[in-house]
Design a protein around this nucleic acid. Structure first.
Length: 804
RNA sequence: GUCAAUGUGGCGAAAUUGGUAUACGCACAUCACUCAAAAUGAUGCGGGAAACCAUGUGGGUUCGAGUCCCACCAUUGACACCA
């Protein structure tokens, strides 16, 4: 009887759906396990074969945890705000909600066809007003605590999307989403003070179980550095230039200063600057460049000296020139630096190009350092010279001494800096959550009354952003004009919307209690389900989504909404699935694999098995149709095991051992995400069953339960065919007896000078003397005429004879 | 440039975490079944006649290195004139 996966898979999917087999229980006394995958953006292209890799992995763990007796929450939803739907709407003049709904329906069907054990009763959708009501509510709380503020600042502006982008959203100088040109533009934006949480976002990584590479990436992104802020007087004025440096020890070597093109000192001292036109020209030039272009690798340094003003080095009292250059960024530190060309590579390049003085202030122990060809940046072996009161000190002491001096004289102070910047939270777009704020002439920015939430997206006829980058909402006079919730006077609404990251920053909380209309989730559900036990997702979300959601969660913790400091106890990541040519799948390369076709031709179980067998879970691997067929063949062999099913329990000791070993190995492999070796263990077992031409019902049942998380349909079907009266999902996870996994006799490798010469069978834990005798008996002949220097026996592992 | 990861048969990969390198699968070859093919099953499959040689390259540590250390090369990813 051939395996008809179409019928079997449909049958079980129907049953699971009708019975709500995988729905989480509201029984808060059971031990809980909350597994989370990144909810998809329902794009028009449908599911990518990359999605099921992550979903299957946690599905396996979720299914196992259920059999282990846990109350499992494994939810699904849709992150449905975003630009593609809006761009589609603009092009085809269809409301984004219609496109979004169609896409979600398609995704849901695709996901269901693969047989994931999601709790569909908790499905959420970020564009649902009952959902984004709480996104807006969180924003208001942030505002009330002073963590949301409006400011005008140069932002990345996509000329195509007509929307401001966070730095994080600019990739290779172009808009991450549309690929359009990005320029710098001044714009009034809502910002979120993620920087206020920078230290905690670093510190609390110590208490959570994230893959080390994820922690490293987050720490580097936040980029803490310690240094000093120092005031440099501008000669002949009452102005000062505030700089940040991590190397205050090199201050005696500061021979010039550089400010970012956007630095306001230029406006403030306009009248004194003698070459103001040249400076303004440079500013204009710089503003046309994106952050990426300005910071691009191996770029020739550019700059202009600001003539007519000089700064005073507070330690040497020397007058030093001030330059403007785009290698200094307004968004980091204070937007101004003291340049120490002798001991900073970039300053050195700049000074060399513009023939500025290079003054060495650090040497090494042997005083063999030369700064004529390159900067000397060694902080471990550096000794201060030409530096007044810090002469002779090492770098570390010199830093401390300088900071103390600066603080005593009130011209500087110790300062911690972060690379992390505040989160630009405004989008001049339609398809996002409206920001629930109004502007009142009298009261300023005022949040809506919470009882007026959700502030629903109004209907518009045109989805195209306004000419100068305004949201389509700005055209709706009737909607904009409102009254101030505070004083009742005339007020206007904010027309910008939130970025897509907003809805995804807290969605995992909504799953805990998705239909609650009194709170984002009930206190009880939060107490029970939080935190997420295991969150798997892509490395590409490490520094954006993952950091943003940690930030929001910490804020919610601070205002008493959630019970723990961190949202996710454990975070893992999956590798990308590439096209069969080893390149990223893309339409243009024609190497896209459509999961629907795979499921239709080979079935969901074969698809799932292959996705797990394809390679190590956390690494990228190319797709291969041939290997997929191998997995499909394996399942056929599993199906045909019924041909060799035998009665009785008369299996051999070795057979029993194999089963215990397999339970142990597969249980461990699932928990450590070594799915590829788990699958190969199943294949080895099946080969063994066929070799011996026998398997009994108990063995077969155990085998099927073990395989069930990977291939849930075929295993349930076989489980019932061989006469089990309950289903696998009603069963418990098999246990193994450790003592039954041990080999009593082992094959011991014999080496001579570390090279394998032979093997010998020994009883486990044999005495060395016994082993020695056996070994010499076996290879003694080969040792004749040689002098034995040493014999090494590592119990049960190896016997190595060193000869001369 | 910085940081991180990776590099093992024709291909995807495995290796008890320092102890028999190449498990499992694919592809391929031969055979069986068939009029034939597909499917299925069986056997073989790193190189070399052998001694031996093989885990990107070159060193090192060790009785013993795919695994640890140093340098280099290549690929991939993330980030960046971060002061």
């Amino acid at each position: 009887m051939a395996y008809n996966f179409k019928e079997v898979e449909k049958k079980w999917q129907k049953k699971w759906e009708a019975e709500g087999t995988f729905n989480a229980k509201d029984n808060y006394t059971m031990p809980k396990w909350y597994g989370l995958i990144e909810f998809p953006y329902p794009s028009g292209q449908g599911l990518h074969v990359g999605h099921p890799r992550s979903y299957t992995a946690l599905d396996i763990i979720a299914r196992k945890k259920r059999l282990n007796g846990y109350n499992v929450l494994y939810p699904i939803g849709f992150d449905a705000f975003g630009l593609p739907a809006e761009n589609y709407a603009i092009k085809n003049n269809i409301h984004p909600s219609i496109v979004t709904e169609a896409n979600i329906n398609h995704f849901r069907e695709q996901l269901k066809s693969i047989g994931f054990s999601f709790d569909w009763s908790r499905e959420i959708n970020t564009t649902d007003p009952n959902y984004y009501k709480w996104t807006q509510w969180i924003f208001i709380q942030l505002f009330k605590k002073g963590l949301a503020y409006k400011t005008t600042m140069p932002i990345n502006y996509c000329t195509s999307c007509k929307v401001g982008l966070a730095n994080e959203e600019v990739v290779n100088g172009v808009c991450e989403r549309c690929g359009g040109e990005v320029i710098q533009k001044e714009k009034s934006q809502w910002m979120l003070k993620i920087t206020e949480y920078a230290q905690r976002l670093i510190d609390d990584l110590d208490d959570i179980d994230y893959l080390e590479k994820i922690k490293i990436q987050q720490r580097n992104w936040i980029g803490k550095s310690e240094g000093a802020e120092v005031k440099f007087k501008i000669d002949g004025t009452d102005k000062e230039l505030l700089i940040y440096t991590t190397r205050p020890d090199t201050m005696f070597g500061a021979t010039y200063m550089v400010v970012a093109p956007e630095h306001n000192i230029i406006n403030e001292l306009k009248d004194k600057i003698t070459n103001i036109e040249e400076v303004e020209n440079y500013k204009t030039l710089a503003s046309k460049k994106s952050d990426f272009e300005r910071t691009e690798l191996s770029k020739e340094k550019t700059g202009v000296e600001i003539k007519g003003i000089k700064a005073v080095n507070p330690l040497t009292n020397e007058l030093i020139p001030i330059w403007i250059s785009d290698y200094v960024l307004i968004t980091y530190g204070t937007g101004a630096i003291m340049a120490v060309p002798a001991h900073d590579t970039r300053d050195f390049e700049f000074a060399t190009k513009f023939k500025l003085p290079i003054k060495q202030v650090i040497t090494n122990n042997d005083n063999t350092v030369s700064v004529s060809k390159e900067a000397y940046t060694d902080t471990d072996n550096g000794i201060l010279i030409n530096s007044g009161f810090i002469n002779g000190m090492n770098v570390k002491d010199a830093i401390n001494a300088t900071i103390k001096y600066l603080e005593d004289k009130n011209i500087g102070k110790k300062k911690v800096n972060y690379k992390l910047r505040d989160w630009v939270f405004s989008r001049q777009r339609y398809w996002g959550e409206p920001i629930p704020m109004v502007y009142c002439e009298k009261c300023g920015w005022v949040p809506l009354d919470e009882s007026d939430l959700p502030l629903k997206l109004p209907e518009v006829k045109e989805f195209l952003p306004g000419e100068n980058g305004e949201s389509p909402l700005a055209k709706l006079d009737a909607w904009i004009n409102t009254t101030c919730p505070h004083c009742g006077g005339k007020a206007t609404r904010e027309t910008d919307t939130m970025p897509q990251w907003a809805g995804s920053s807290w969605y995992f909380l909504r799953y805990m209690d998705p239909h609650n209309d009194k709170a984002l989730a009930s206190k009880e559900s939060l107490e029970y389900w939080a935190p997420v036990d295991w969150y798997n997702g892509g490395m590409e979300h490490t520094t954006l989504h993952l950091l943003y959601s940690r930030f929001w969660y910490k804020f919610l913790y601070d205002i008493g909404v959630v019970p723990t400091k961190e949202p996710y106890s454990k975070r893992t990541s999956h590798g990308m699935i590439l096209g069969n040519n080893g390149e990223k799948m893309s339409k243009s390369k024609g190497n896209v694999v459509n999961p629907d076709e795979i499921v239709a031709e080979f079935g969901a179980d074969a698809f799932r098995t292959y996705e797990m067998f394809i390679g190590p879970f956390d690494q990228s691997t190319p797709w291969s149709m041939e290997s997929l067929r191998g997995c499909s063949k394996f399942l056929d062999r599993v199906w045909n095991l019924t041909d060799i099913l035998v009665d009785g329990d008369s299996y051999s000791k070795d057979f029993e051992k194999m089963m215990h070993k397999a339970i142990k190995k597969i249980s461990e492999d699932y928990e450590t995400m070594k799915f590829n070796t788990a699958v190969s263990t199943f294949m080895t077992m099946v080969n063994e069953f066929y070799r011996l031409k026998r398997i009994n019902k108990a063995e077969f049942s155990t085998f099927l339960i073990l395989l069930n998380p990977i291939a849930p349909h075929i295993t349930e079907e076989l489980f019932s065919i061989i006469g089990n009266t309950i289903t696998i999902s009603e069963n418990t996870w098999p246990e193994y007896d450790d003592s039954k996994t041990i080999d009593e006799e082992i094959e011991l490798p014999i080496q001579v000078n570390g090279k394998l010469k032979s093997t010998v069978n020994i009883t486990l834990d044999s005495d060395e003397s016994v082993v020695k005798e056996l070994v010499h008996e076996k290879i003694g002949g080969q040792l004749e005429g040689k002098q034995i220097v040493k014999e090494i026996y590592v119990k049960n592992k190896i016997y190595n004879i060193v000869v001369k």
